[in-house]
């Protein structure tokens, strides 16, 4: 009898429970903060809640100093999901809770999109879709020139795949063999005007990234165990000679039933009574 091969990358049940809880925290905080702003991108965060959780509560190397040169980086091509990142940065101690609670109010550093000059822990500003992978290419190049081993994670929207600059960046990352650059595509299937496949189709997406010279993995972006395992593997595999793209198949609005089926929720507002119902629904589910 041979012993079963130990899978060092698979998170334990306790880890999975913890990461699931943190994803739930991201969703609940998003509802709370959008109540302050009275408008926001609920569903763009909900599709990415497990991605946020896996990265910030497991995979990324974080440092007390948010400018530490060896920290892992996280960039958001879909900067409009920043409302999901800010509660994490506050919980990690980069942001005072009072600042978080003043989200979008006059003079507060936290707006709909992340600003690296104003918000400690934001590794790069965004808001104009299509730039982030290039920014990540630069970080990976700069890190390699200085012999640093940090990983640059870039979360991209699937609608963002329609931006030409993404593919300029994809070509250059493969050409320069940036093996410490990991892109995560939040493939939630929707953008402002409707389904991505109807607005401007992007499939076959995995084949596109492969053709551009990337290693590609397609995962269920809400299976926190599988997603975390894929990210751990991608981060650990430094023998890889090319960048890695993880396509996370997700559901836009995951966690609130009507948001999962109505594409109009890309941007919206929940009255406090509806917000409370949404909160209860999220708390009642195991995703």
């Amino acid at each position: 009898m041979t012993a079963p091969i130990r899978n060092d990358f698979r998170p334990s049940e306790a880890e999975i429970a913890y990461l699931r809880d943190r994803a739930q925290f991201v969703r609940l905080e998003t509802i709370r903060l959008i109540e302050i702003a009275k408008v926001g991108h609920y569903t763009s965060v909900f599709s990415a809640a497990e991605i946020f959780s896996a990265l910030y509560y497991d995979v990324m190397r974080l440092e007390a100093d948010p400018k530490h040169p060896d920290r892992d980086r996280f960039l958001m091509g879909k900067g409009h999901a920043a409302v999901g990142l800010f509660p994490i940065l506050a919980e990690k101690g980069y942001l005072p809770v009072e600042v978080l609670n003043g989200y979008t109010r006059l003079g507060n550093p936290l707006g709909d999109h992340p600003d690296m000059r104003k918000v400690p822990g934001v590794d790069f500003s965004s808001g104009s879709i299509g730039h982030a992978l290039s920014n990540g290419v630069g970080m990976a190049l700069g890190g390699r020139m200085q012999g640093r081993d940090f990983i640059t994670f870039v979360m991209l929207g699937d609608g963002e795949m329609q931006e030409g600059q993404v593919w300029e960046a994809a070509i250059s990352a493969a050409h320069h063999k940036l093996n410490r650059l990991i892109a995560i595509v939040d493939r939630n299937g929707f953008q402002l005007d409707g389904a991505v496949d109807d607005v401007m189709g992007i499939e076959p997406l995995d084949e596109k990234w492969r053709a551009f010279g990337w290693e590609v993995h397609v995962v269920d972006g809400h299976d926190i165990g599988g997603l975390t395992e894929a990210l751990r593997r991608a981060k650990a595999d430094v023998s890889r000679k090319r960048p890695c793209c993880i396509i996370a198949r997700t559901v836009k609005g995951k966690g609130v039933s009507y948001m999962e089926t109505e594409p109009g929720w890309h941007l919206g507002y929940l009255d406090p009574s509806d917000a409370e119902a949404a909160r209860r629904e999220i708390l009642s589910k195991v995703i």
Partner: peptide
């Protein structure tokens, strides 16, 4: 080792230069 060729991708070059600058280099 201090030169990066970007090919014909000016937008990528400018955004990547910004990324390089965040690591403490002077692009």
């Amino acid at each position: 080792d201090r030169y990066v060729g970007f090919g014909i991708s000016e937008q990528n070059m400018v955004s990547a230069a910004a990324g390089i600058a965040t690591t403490g280099m002077m692009p």
